[in-house]
Design a binder for these strands. Structure first.
Lengths: 154, 154
DNA sequence: AAAATACTTGACAAATTTGGTAAGGTATTT
DNA sequence: AAATACCTTACCAAATTTGTCAAGTATTTT
């Protein structure tokens, strides 16, 4: 249930690779392909979207590749996924581009809306920098439930 | 992104209707169909699964219908969705019935696992009774983030 | 200028999932 | 025995997913 498509998954992994070269080492598509086991053609589609969204910039010619447009701590997982898969919308009637004809009568409308917000908040608080840091499972779980963030790092 | 299939959505809405008759009024499939705008054939598939899972019981003959096997506050949304759509698994490699060959190298594994847990916790804390009570958006959001639950009801 | 390297675009398509419908059968109660 | 209700199986169309392929276009280095 609630599965993410490969496009979103690969996109995050590709952005992780590009983040590793930040700020002065362009990462070319072949090395991303090799390190993350994704075909070059498919990656091209994904990176193209992310480039148009302003998350990355491309540099052509020998020594070229992709570079983040912002620092890794300024790019959240939500930023990436929303570009590749659209906004979080548990049901089609919660998709801003669609609509719902039975909202008033719908007993589950608020439930799904609330779940969607929960997910988006979580994904907005995790950045590429967190992935670079190799945060642990416990760290991620704490993100939403605990806002104090006492600098207690394992 | 992260959309729920109609099977899960309809399932929750059907369970809501059945919950309304709890404990002594069996709810027949036709009235569920009419109230929730779902075809009888499709509902039959859904209710069949939920019956085999032990969430509801069926009573045949005139005056028959479906009845919850447990009280509405003992059946969570997670219970229903997991039966209809399988466990929360953001990626296929997190599905217990499948597997992942590159867990060690995967920088996003923990991220997805953590998100899945977040979602499951949320859905486990909301029950059919909450839907019957017509909880507000604010109420749902509070479920996960606030465990104190000061009985402050709007 | 030419060669190497890299990115861009668009068309295409197999496989899977989704979202159902239809027909006929079985069980229970009044 | 008639009415009511649930059960099972088979089938299928459309949409989405998950890519591949071919043929460009742009830039830099030598």
């Amino acid at each position: 249930m609630l599965r993410l498509s490969t496009k979103g998954q690969y996109g995050v992994r590709a952005m992780y690779e590009i983040a590793r070269g930040y700020p002065d080492e362009p990462v070319n598509i072949r090395s991303i392909s090799e390190r993350q086991d994704v075909s070059i053609s498919y990656l091209e589609q994904i990176l193209n979207k992310l480039r148009h969204a302003g998350l990355i910039r491309s540099i052509k010619g020998p020594g070229g590749g992709y570079v983040l447009e912002r620092a890794p701590e300024k790019i959240s997982i939500a930023d990436i996924l929303i570009e590749l898969e659209g906004p979080v919308a548990i049901t089609s009637c919660l998709d801003p581009s669609e609509g719902c004809v039975r909202v008033e009568r719908c007993v589950t409308h608020l439930l799904w809306k609330s779940l969607g917000k929960q997910i988006e908040d979580f994904l907005s608080k995790i950045t590429l920098q967190d992935l670079l840091n190799g945060k642990s499972y416990r760290d991620f779980s704490r993100v939403v439930s605990n806002k104090r963030e006492k600098a207690v790092q394992a």
